[in-house]
Computed example of a mutant assay.
Amino acid sequence: MSKLKIAIQKSGRLKDDSLALLKQCGISVDNGRDQLKVSANNFPLEIFFLRNSDIPQYIEDGVVDLGIVGENLLYEIDSELDVLRSLNFSKCRVSIAVPKNSKFTDIKDFEGKKIATSYPNTTQKFFKSNGVNTEVHAISGSVEIAPNIGLSDAICDIVSTGNTLFNNGLKELFVIMKSQAVLVKQPKPSREVNSLIEQLNFRIGAVLRAKTSKYILMNVPNANIQKVSALLPVLKSPTVLPLAEEGWSSLHSVIDEDDFWNVIDQLKEAGAEGILVAPIEKIIE
């Protein structure tokens, strides 16, 4: 029987978030310290722990079938790998940052300046698209110290919270792109492997949908059920259960978390009472 092979980053936040996602998908993994490959206990899956920059090549060569990487990496290497879905974690942005006391304000101010970065291709594409010639210095690690030691006038790096920039006396000036973790697959999986990919992708979809949704239940006058239901369009139809008090029902549905506070007043105006909101573990569609 074939096993699905997936590559994830061998250390760091992306690794932790990837393993957490697999666990939420019901996949049990005994991840021993410093192991480069482990097998799942309850799903035909092998996990390869690789350097982030190596994952796309392993997928292209068919050594692994799937990989979890950042969108920014795929952009940097001009990858044409098939992205199955965005995973809504490890969010960051690739930005140009300069010293806080810098007088840089416009993109044209960077003409002829030195830019230190771990993403030279991304940096060059950004400035070239804006008609600006810069001197790009490709370095690995601790990019943020480059301006302080005179190596560069600015940097291009990934930014999550901005704390690292602040602590090194830098400010974010331009955002080149926003990025998050994505699931990518090899170009030509076998039929059996592709079936396993679809199974895993289905599970991931159920988990991700649940993270952005809430289970909502409320008491509603029967005459207002249709009006209230129109405010909760997530599922095909709400569940309606009669209450002991005549003329009233309990309405159960799902709502996008981002929409809840936007419609709560409308629900109350429509006659909803005793509104309860609860988290959802999975949504199977």
Rank of each mutant, 00 (worst) to 15 (best):
D17P: 03
D17T: 14
D17V: 12
S18L: 13
S18M: 12
L19P: 11
L19S: 09
L19E: 13
A20S: 15
A20P: 06
L21G: 08
L22S: 03
L22W: 02
K23Y: 10
Q24I: 00
Q24V: 00
C25S: 09
C25G: 04
G26A: 04
G26D: 04
G26N: 04
I27M: 01
I27Q: 00
I27R: 00
S28Y: 07
V29D: 00
V29E: 00
D30Q: 04
D30H: 05
G32Y: 07
G32E: 08
R33S: 09
Q35G: 00
Q35D: 12
L36D: 14
L36W: 08
K37S: 09
K37G: 01
S39N: 13
S39V: 00
S39H: 11
A40I: 14
A40M: 14
A40K: 11
A40Q: 13
A40E: 14
N41E: 15
N41I: 10
N41R: 15
N42E: 11
F43Q: 12
L45S: 13
L45T: 10
L45K: 09
E46Q: 15
E46M: 07
E46N: 15
I47D: 10
F48M: 08
F48Q: 05
F49R: 06
F49A: 03
F49P: 06
F49G: 04
L50V: 12
L50M: 15
R51S: 13
R51K: 14
I55R: 03
I55A: 02
P56D: 07
Q57Y: 06
Y58K: 09
Y58D: 02
I59V: 15
E60C: 00
E60L: 08
D61K: 10
D61I: 00
D61Y: 02
G62D: 06
G62T: 05
V63Y: 08
V63C: 00
V63N: 04
V63L: 08
V64D: 02
D65M: 06
L66H: 05
L66V: 08
L66D: 05
L66S: 05
G67P: 06
G67W: 00
